[in-house]
Simulated assay, not measured.
Amino acid sequence: MKNKSLLDMPCPIAKSLEHVGEWWNILILREALLGVCRFDDFQSHLGIATSTLAKRLNAMVESGLLERRQYCEKPPRDEYVITQQGLDFRPVLLTIMQWGNKYYADGEPTIQLVDTHTNQAVDLMLVDRNTNMEIDPQRHRSQAGPAADELIKARFKR
């Protein structure tokens, strides 16, 4: 059964979930960020059915997260290269990884981000690039943006 499309919703979270919210998409992006680009490698690393993988890769190419490039003419074979849009998803993946390590790891993390100079584990935090201040719910809040429709403006007036 096809889920309702979220593209018509004005919320940027909903629109983003339309492209990356399918859990296979997030795992495919993880693999692409680790350098995987061939269909067979995605399949073996993920244990995903070929039909599901083909469908997900096609959707991710259409969404602009991956780019299809032919690497063999006979037989025709494509690889899937992560785009800048896909690369920009990396901080989201790293945040999910840190959150998963905090709440779902059985003891120590199985995968973690480390500083290549110190070899120390990184503790991510969200920072406002303009002020270099950590995002804090006491100081920062969401509000309607310049392109907000009347429903969003009303919701944030509360």
Results as ranks from 00 to 15, higher is better:
residue 12 P to C: 04
residue 58 N to I: 02
residue 47 G to E: 04
residue 154 A to P: 03
residue 137 P to R: 08
residue 130 N to D: 08
residue 136 D to I: 05
residue 155 R to K: 13
residue 52 T to V: 10
residue 39 F to I: 02
residue 103 Y to F: 12
residue 58 N to S: 08
residue 70 Q to F: 00
residue 118 T to V: 05
residue 60 M to Y: 00
residue 105 A to R: 10
residue 48 I to Q: 10
residue 156 F to S: 02
residue 79 E to P: 04
residue 93 L to A: 14
residue 84 Q to Y: 03
residue 36 V to I: 11
residue 81 V to K: 01
residue 158 R to A: 13
residue 103 Y to A: 04
residue 29 L to S: 00
residue 40 D to M: 03
residue 120 Q to F: 00
residue 27 L to G: 02
residue 50 T to S: 06
residue 87 L to E: 15
residue 55 K to Y: 13
residue 153 K to C: 06
residue 38 R to T: 05
residue 132 N to R: 08
residue 21 G to S: 07
residue 152 I to E: 09
residue 147 A to F: 06
residue 62 E to R: 03
residue 48 I to M: 14
residue 47 G to T: 05
residue 67 E to C: 01
residue 122 V to M: 07
residue 112 Q to G: 06
residue 132 N to D: 14
residue 111 I to E: 09
residue 27 L to H: 14
residue 51 S to W: 02
residue 70 Q to L: 09
residue 105 A to M: 10
residue 10 P to H: 02
residue 81 V to F: 01
residue 81 V to D: 01
residue 132 N to A: 13
residue 76 P to E: 13
residue 59 A to P: 00
residue 71 Y to M: 04
residue 4 K to T: 14
residue 91 P to H: 11
residue 97 M to I: 12
residue 136 D to A: 08
residue 99 W to T: 15
residue 118 T to L: 05
residue 92 V to I: 15
residue 14 A to P: 06
residue 6 L to T: 02
residue 102 K to I: 09
residue 105 A to W: 11
residue 67 E to D: 06
residue 126 L to Q: 08
residue 92 V to G: 06
residue 78 D to K: 03
residue 2 K to M: 05
residue 101 N to D: 13
residue 97 M to V: 12
residue 147 A to N: 12
residue 132 N to F: 10
residue 123 D to I: 13
residue 87 L to P: 01
residue 43 Q to N: 07
residue 139 R to P: 00
residue 97 M to Q: 15
residue 56 R to A: 08
residue 67 E to N: 05
residue 42 F to L: 01
residue 32 A to W: 03
residue 22 E to R: 09
residue 31 E to D: 09
residue 134 E to M: 10
residue 153 K to P: 04
residue 98 Q to E: 15
residue 6 L to E: 02
residue 91 P to M: 10
residue 78 D to I: 00
